[in-house]
Every structure is written in structure tokens, then in C-alpha cells.
């Protein structure tokens, strides 16, 4: 019955392509523009949060932690609302991760706080018995790279029109203004921390990596 089609492998391939492409068009295209736009309330990261994001990437947190909550009850019970694509609009790159050795962190800002992160980063196994997460004491020593974070923010603002400095959005301004703003945000976080090292560094105008990464983790909501 279909010998005529089997004799023409090229047209057979074209037919297969059309059928599959049509399926793609019907399922992907109708909502594509809509779902790619930022969800209402999604804001770009502040410079301090961005510096923390760099620490997150540098220390490879995304190798063990995902940032993607799937629409299953078992996941939403534990991690909160499922993720929407528009929530990643300002993530460059997104940090979905591919493996959950540790729990998902998409909305960790909703259920963990500054003091918890401080204790946990110093010695995870003490807080969570049986945890295999390594210790990150170097975050209390290294200084966060605010300049690079500012450079990234400025670049995405100029190149991709990320809405910094718009009303209701984070302020960017000049490098000096951004540094002052980052210090102000850092102060709020350090107020909830105990480490004397970090507190003294902040008085000297130094923001430690731990402060930046806590700012980032707290912003994940």
C-alpha cells in the first residue's frame, strides 16, 4: 500500500519533518512570546545579589542544587510554587542544574534565613545530620567581587535592555553609587550575622563572599 512512499526516501523524510514540525508549532509557538517575558514582580538582581550569584557559580553550587520546581505535588509541597519560564528572564545563564544531590533552591529565600545560611555554610553536617555538603569557610575570608558584578549588570542593561534604574526596579547608577548601594544592602544582612570577622570587614568597607551569596539566596523567592 505504501510502496510508493518507501521508493521515495527523500519525500518520506520531508513528510516526517512536516508532521513533527507541525507538532512543535502547535505546542510551542502559541505561548512562546508570553512565557519568555518576565513574570510580573520579577526583578533583575542587584549588584550585591549578582556578586553572590557569581560566588554560587564559582563554587559550583549548581552541580548539586537545581533551581527548577516541577509541577508535581511532591515538589510543590516541599519547595513551594512550581517554576515559570518568565521567572528566569533575568538569569544569565539560568541555573536550572541537572541533578539534585542537595535540595532545590529555586525559592530558598522563602524558608531559610540569613542566620541559618551563616551556620550552615560553616558546617553543614552540624545543622543537617548526615548532610554530605562540604564546608565553605573560605566564603568568610574571600572578598566578593563587586566590580565584576557591576560590569555584568551594566552590560546586560546596555546590551539587553535589562530594566535597571527604571521605576520600581533596582538602581544601578555609576560604579560608586552601585558600591554604596551594595554596602547598604550588605549592612542589612550582616546585622543578622554573628561572625566578628565579617562584621569587621564590613566596617572597613569590604563585603565578604558569604554576605553576597546570602544576599543572592535570600533573593530567590
Amino acid at each position: 500500500m505504501f510502496h510508493w512512499l518507501e521508493r521515495n526516501p527523500f519525500f518520506f523524510a520531508v513528510g516526517v519533518f512536516i508532521v513533527i514540525a507541525y507538532a512543535g508549532i502547535v505546542t510551542i509557538l502559541p505561548d512562546f512570546m508570553n512565557s519568555a517575558r518576565p513574570v510580573v514582580g520579577t526583578k533583575p538582581y542587584t549588584v550585591l545579589q549578582l556578586a553572590g550569584r557569581h560566588v554560587y557559580i564559582k563554587d559550583s553550587c549548581n552541580a548539586c542544587h537545581s533551581q527548577l520546581i516541577r509541577p508535581f505535588k511532591s515538589e510543590t509541597d516541599r519547595y513551594g510554587m512550581y517554576s515559570l519560564s518568565g521567572e528566569y528572564a533575568y538569569d544569565r545563564p539560568f541555573l536550572w542544574g541537572s541533578k539534585r544531590t542537595g535540595p532545590d533552591l529555586m525559592r530558598v529565600g522563602n524558608y531559610r534565613t540569613t542566620d541559618w545560611h551563616e551556620n550552615h555554610m560553616l558546617n553543614p553536617a552540624e545543622i543537617v545530620p548526615g548532610s554530605i555538603m562540604p564546608k565553605y569557610p573560605h566564603m568568610f575570608k574571600n572578598v566578593a567581587d563587586i566590580e565584576t558584578a557591576y560590569a555584568e549588570a551594566l552590560t546586560v542593561k546596555k546590551v539587553f535592555n535589562v530594566p535597571y534604574d527604571k521605576s520600581g526596579m533596582p538602581k544601578l547608577g555609576t560604579l560608586e553609587e552601585a558600591k554604596a548601594q551594595a554596602l547598604k544592602e550588605a549592612e542589612e544582612i550582616v546585622a543578622n550575622m554573628k561572625s566578628p570577622e565579617v562584621k569587621e570587614a564590613l566596617k572597613r568597607g569590604e563585603i565578604k563572599e558569604i554576605v553576597a551569596i546570602i544576599a543572592y539566596l535570600n533573593s530567590l523567592k
Binding site: 513551594g80 522563602n110 524558608y111 531559610r112 540569613t114 542566620d115 543578622n192
Partner: peptide
Amino acid sequence: NIGVMPKFNDGR
């Protein structure tokens, strides 16, 4: 005084 406990009123 010890630290901050988050709210659990988000429907979880």
C-alpha cells in the same frame, strides 16, 4: 533575638 524564622503562611 536568636535569628529569623520565616513565615509558613504561603500555603505549604
